[in-house]
């Protein structure tokens, strides 16, 4: 009973937030609503006892990805009028895209939706059941090749992104931080011990 209530609360929040993501005028607000959508999704996953996935969703998407998103979006100087200009022109194309996606989802999930078995009931586990452990076991045994493949793909993406954006321009002046840090006092300062006072006679000699 309570669980159903909480589920509908989170579900409503997710849907509303997702709607606001595409209707919000300000891109920063849209990004923040996406964060809210992620958070309520994590809540739903928690209800499914998928605590590892829920935490990872918050940690990775909310804590890192969306922060970088916001980072970029906040720095943009966006002209809202210009953004809305081509809306109606692209509207049919957008509708078509959405229809295709919905169709694909039905195609993939349709069997299960009609079968009625695995969807409506959540398997209840004992208190010492660790979702994290199960997931780890699955990833590193049954699905080790797909997992490694995905990891390699991500690595390639990282290397490619760096290779694409990193270009050495001529004539730019940069600081080499490691060299700056490696500097010790002995490299720059020479401490000389000199007498603080000298005799009057010698001082006069210097004056002449």
């Amino acid at each position: 009973m309570t669980e159903t209530l909480v589920f509908y609360l989170f579900a409503a929040m997710t849907v509303l937030a997702a709607l606001r993501v595409i209707t919000a005028r300000n891109p920063v607000q849209a990004a923040l609503f996406l964060v809210l959508a992620f958070c309520s999704m994590a809540g739903i996953w928690l209800l499914l006892e998928a605590e590892f996935l829920a935490m990872t969703l918050i940690l990775v998407y909310v804590g890192a990805v969306m922060v970088l998103f916001l980072f970029v979006v906040m720095m943009l100087d966006i002209d809202l009028e210009q953004l809305r200009e081509g809306f109606w022109r692209w509207f049919p194309f957008g509708i078509l895209l959405a229809a295709v996606m919905v169709g694909e989802m039905f195609w993939v999930l349709g069997n299960r939706l009609t079968a009625e078995s695995g969807l409506s009931t959540v398997v209840q586990h004992a208190a010492d059941y660790s979702n994290t452990k199960e997931l780890g076991r699955l990833i590193y045994t049954d699905y080790v090749y797909p997992f490694e493949l995905a990891a390699v793909l991500l690595l390639i993406a990282i290397v490619a992104a760096i290779a694409l954006t990193l270009r050495r321009r001529k004539g730019t002046k940069t600081q080499v931080v490691s060299q700056q840090i490696a500097v010790k006092r002995e490299d720059r300062v020479r401490l000389v011990s000199m007498p603080a006072e000298s005799k009057i006679g010698s001082a006069k000699k210097q004056e002449r």
Binding site: E51, F52, M55, L59, V62, N131, T132
Partner: peptide
Amino acid sequence: LNAGLLYILA
């Protein structure tokens, strides 16, 4: 919580 460490990180 079983995933306490993850929770803290999140």
